[in-house]
């Protein structure tokens, strides 16, 4: 199947099995390894990317459904001021340990703040409930998001 889509703001035209997972397309074909496979069933959130600005689990997205869509991975998002604010917030809070879940959390945070720039603690927890972390116990990540909101005030 021929597919046209935008990846990290560049247009692409590819020939691909429509059932091929977006996750594999990004990792195997484009070498975008910030996108991680942690479960392959939408449970862990390590493969989260933005599709038309919204967080999605790329392991659950068949390539046949990305026609005309804009996909953004961390490789592109890390060039933004919003990323800088999240990076600073997460660093200062001690939100990073093993790091395998981290790109997914960064992308989920962007999606959350994009939709709701001023979430309550409970809304942050809910907004990140599709991301598993086994190292931190989450509270330090929640703190990281709150620090990012302060540091990046006005960006979202």
């Amino acid at each position: 199947m021929k597919i046209e889509f935008y990846l990290n703001n560049d247009p692409h035209e590819i020939e691909v099995d429509p059932a091929y997972r977006l996750l594999d397309l990004l990792r195997e074909d484009f070498g975008l390894t910030s996108v991680k496979e942690g479960c392959g069933e939408g449970e862990c959130g390590a493969c989260i990317v933005l599709m038309n600005g919204l967080a999605v689990n790329s392991c659950l997205v068949p390539c046949g459904s990305i026609l005309g869509k804009h996909i953004i991975t961390l490789e592109e998002f890390r060039k933004t001021d919003r990323y800088e604010a999240i990076e600073k917030g997460f660093m200062d809070a001690g939100a990073v340990q093993c790091g395998f879940c981290t790109p997914g959390f960064v992308m989920a945070t962007e999606s959350l703040l994009n939709q709701n720039p001023d979430p309550t603690d409970e809304e942050i927890r809910e907004g990140l409930s599709g991301n598993l972390c086994r190292c931190t116990g989450y509270n330090l990540i929640i703190k990281g998001v709150k620090l990012a909101m302060e540091k990046g005030a006005g960006l979202w």
Binding site: T33, L74, E75, E87, G94, G99, F100, P103
Partner: peptide, 21 residues
């Protein structure tokens, strides 16, 4: 007193390579 983790930045930027990468 806390200091920044040396590996945090690369992990946040998604640059860190794990075996599958």
């Amino acid at each position: 007193q806390s200091i920044p983790r040396s590996d945090a930045k690369a992990k946040l930027r998604g640059e860190t390579k794990y075996i599958a990468d």
